[in-house]
Design a protein around this nucleic acid. Structure first.
Length: 679
DNA sequence: AGGCCGTACTG
DNA sequence: CAGTAC
DNA sequence: GCCT
């Protein structure tokens, strides 16, 4: 079973706390280290805004290498917050060491320092991502590091790497500064990296993935989608429904051409025939009878597609599942974004840093030309500023972004990232668990992470690995029908739409989002009399699902407020549950394969706001953020239970269809398949 | 210089 | 209130 | 980090 992947062999947790990391930022609070316990911040020389200048003076005065800081000294971070630097004291005076450490902090990285005399260098190396030294001879560096150095794979760089980063305004590759391990290619001096990166460059230009096949990110992760297993299961559901071709690769892009109206490939599998071409929602259900093998879910979209525009708002730009032109770059920047998420602290300005990457990534993803042809064009894209522009240039120059490459080589990052995939674990939880020594799901559950408090460790280990598996479209449909059927039994005349990634056309989904409401067309009389009725209906359905052993867990049932001031506003009832779908009749003999636990969100809403709810639950995240920003700008507040004018917050506008909201907000209708604005 | 989606639950 | 989810 |  795939969960074994989680049992990654890792060193025994434990000695972590020997090391303390300190960090001082150019101003304000010294963030506590994500790894190791926070040490008291060192006395900051020159507090407040004058810090950088003081630093430069300091460094210039005490460093042999001249520090020719460009006129505009960088106020933003240059090294990733995930960069952890250990300065080798050998041959460096204390003053010089201090200056280097200050520079490290100024650039936004962490210093790793030994907390006691007894701690060995090797312990520090465990936490450092780079070691800096004045030493230039590999042999000497090796001696200084000790035996374990090699196994750790932490490179020793000459400290001029730091100033090089400062000058470039972006993290630069290690190669030209690397002393140990000695690079096989004659790359010891500045001009070297060019030849080494030739092949990488070719990759970038040809839009191939920039990351080496076996980067550590994969250690704890399951495949993105379309594992053989899942494809197979997809087939099983297809068989159940009367024979489908196998799911396409995730896709949905522009055809090959310029902006304008684009013949877009979009998923189908959802068009039940009642309603207009644009109305792609609704029940996939009764289609199994359409006998001659129905086509795969990707078909030509017939409606008009908004033209690309250089907007800072993702909701104005058509964004397919994968960029046809710049996906490798998108993937590269996403690595950086995730690392920023992992290191963001609430309250600090960090949280907006990852968001900025998210917007830039989204903008690049939607950009309808290959940047490889002309990287300079990137600076004209709204959402791409000075810093990310530099990263783009670096990507096409070298074939990778130095910071992203460094992050990929960082085990701790890979592990913490994998923790984020578990329900209830966010950045803080992932950091904390890692810091406490957790390296696997088992560790995480033992420490009380994810929902192990509620479920208990064993139960967690039984359920959570299943939830990592993505859900094929057929099974999404199967589960949604199951749920819809229960609603019909209690309250006939309900319509539903499977939202989330499914509706955006993805081949597989992380969970199933089912939005339901009474359908006025089917059963005008069957409308829910009051909000109380609505809530009761949901609970009745949950009860029924539990009785049938389809639902195994209730993660939470939201009880949204009914009042806004004095006004009663419509609300959604939301149930987050875990289901274990019955094994498929169609999959018959193949009963060896047990079904998997699946996360399902049931959203019960009302016909008057059905459009808002469906829009709100279709995503992507970036699309949601940006359509809300747009709403604000237009004097509205939008959320999934409705659209209201800021002046009359008590009055929810009728938005039975998604189109209603687009119109009111002045946004061209974007078909769901072009709302894939996240990397 | 100020803002960055909006709401709800858990501990 | 911090953290997390959707 | 980027936009207004």
């Amino acid at each position: 079973m795939s969960s074994t992947r989680l049992g990654v062999p890792l060193r025994s947790p434990g000695r972590a706390r020997l090391v303390s990391a300190t960090s001082a930022t150019s101003s304000q609070t010294a963030p506590s280290s994500p790894l190791g316990s926070a040490a008291p911040a060192p006395s900051r020389a020159g507090s407040g805004a004058s810090a950088p200048r003081t630093l430069h003076a300091l460094v210039r005065a005490r460093t042999p290498d001249a520090l020719s800081a460009p006129a505009g000294s960088p106020s933003k971070r240059i090294l990733a917050p995930s960069t952890r630097v250990h300065v080798l004291p050998d041959k460096l005076g204390q003053a010089h060491i201090d200056a280097l450490r200050q520079l490290v902090a100024h650039l936004g990285a962490l210093n790793v320092v030994r907390s006691s005399h007894t701690a060995s260098v090797a312990v520090s190396l465990d936490y450092a991502t780079v070691v800096l030294s004045e030493i230039r001879a590999p042999k000497r560096a090796e001696r200084a590091l000790g035996d374990e150095a090699e196994s750790r794979g932490v490179p020793v760089l000459h400290h001029s790497w730091l100033t090089a980063c400062l000058e470039a305004g972006i993290q630069v590759p290690h190669e030209a500064y690397q002393i140990y391990p000695r690079l096989t290619a004659p790359a010891a001096s500045a001009s070297a990296s060019a030849s080494a990166s030739a092949s990488a460059l070719k990759r970038a230009a040809s839009n191939e993935p920039a990351s080496p096949r076996r980067h550590p990110e994969k250690i704890l992760r399951l495949e993105e989608s379309g594992t053989e297993e899942e494809q197979e299961q997809d087939e099983a559901y297809a068989a159940l429904r009367g024979g489908y071709a196998s799911a396409e690769e995730e896709e949905g892009g522009y055809g090959s051409h310029e902006e304008g109206t684009l013949p877009v490939m979009v998923p189908r599998g959802i068009d039940k025939g009642k309603g207009r071409a644009l109305d792609v929602d609704a029940s996939p259900s009764r289609r199994a009878s359409a006998s001659p093998t129905p086509p795969p879910h990707v078909v030509a979209y017939e409606g008009a597609v908004p033209a690309w525009q250089n907007s800072a708002n993702a909701c104005f730009r058509p964004t397919p599942i994968r960029s046809m032109f710049n996906q490798p770059l998108v993937d590269e920047l996403e690595v950086i974004r995730v690392s920023r998420v992992l290191f963001e602290k609430n309250g600090a300005r960090d949280q907006h840093n990852s968001a900025a990457y998210g917007r830039a990534i989204s903008a690049i993803k939607a950009y309808p030309h290959p940047l490889a042809k002309d990287p300079k064009k990137a600076k004209e894209i709204a959402g791409v500023g000075a810093k990310i522009y530099k990263a783009v240039l670096q990507f096409y120059e070298l074939g990778y972004v130095a910071e992203a490459r460094a992050i990929r080589g960082d085990q701790s990052h890979a592990i913490m990232k994998s923790f984020l995939d578990f329900y209830g674990v966010g950045p803080a939880g992932a950091r904390k668990a890692y810091q406490q020594g957790a390296r696997s799901l088992q560790d995480l559950c033992s420490l009380g992470g994810s929902y192990s408090d509620r479920l208990g460790r064993e139960e967690c280990l039984r359920i959570l690995p299943d939830l990592l598996h993505r859900i094929p479209r057929r099974e999404c449909e199967f589960i949604a029908e199951l749920i819809h059927d229960e609603f019909e039994k209690i309250h006939p005349g309900m319509k539903y739409t499977i939202c989330g990634g499914y509706r955006r056309g993805k081949a597989t989904s992380g969970d199933v989002d089912v939005v339901l409401a009474p359908d006025p067309e089917k059963a005008p009389v069957g409308d829910l009399k009051s909000l109380k009725h609505q809530t009761r209906l949901l609970h009745q359905v949950l009860e029924a699902l539990k009785k049938k052993a389809v639902m195994t867990h209730i993660v939470s049932v939201a009880q949204p407020s009914e009042y806004y001031g004095e006004a009663i506003v419509p609300h959604c009832d939301i149930a987050e549950i875990v289901v274990l779908p019955p094994s498929l009749p169609g999959a018959g003999a193949d009963a060896t394969k047990r079904p998997r636990y699946r996360r399902v969100d049931i959203i019960l809403t009302r016909a008057e706001v059905y459009g808002a709810t469906v829009l709100g639950w279709t995503g992507s995240k970036q699309f949601e953020k940006d359509i809300r920003r747009q709403a604000r700008q237009q004097g509205y507040k939008f959320h999934s239970t409705g659209l209201v004018r800021l002046e009359q917050p008590g009055v929810t506008l009728d938005t039975p269809q998604e189109q209603d909201i687009f119109e009111l907000l002045g946004v061209p209708y974007m078909p769901p398949h072009l709302r894939n604005c996240d990397a």
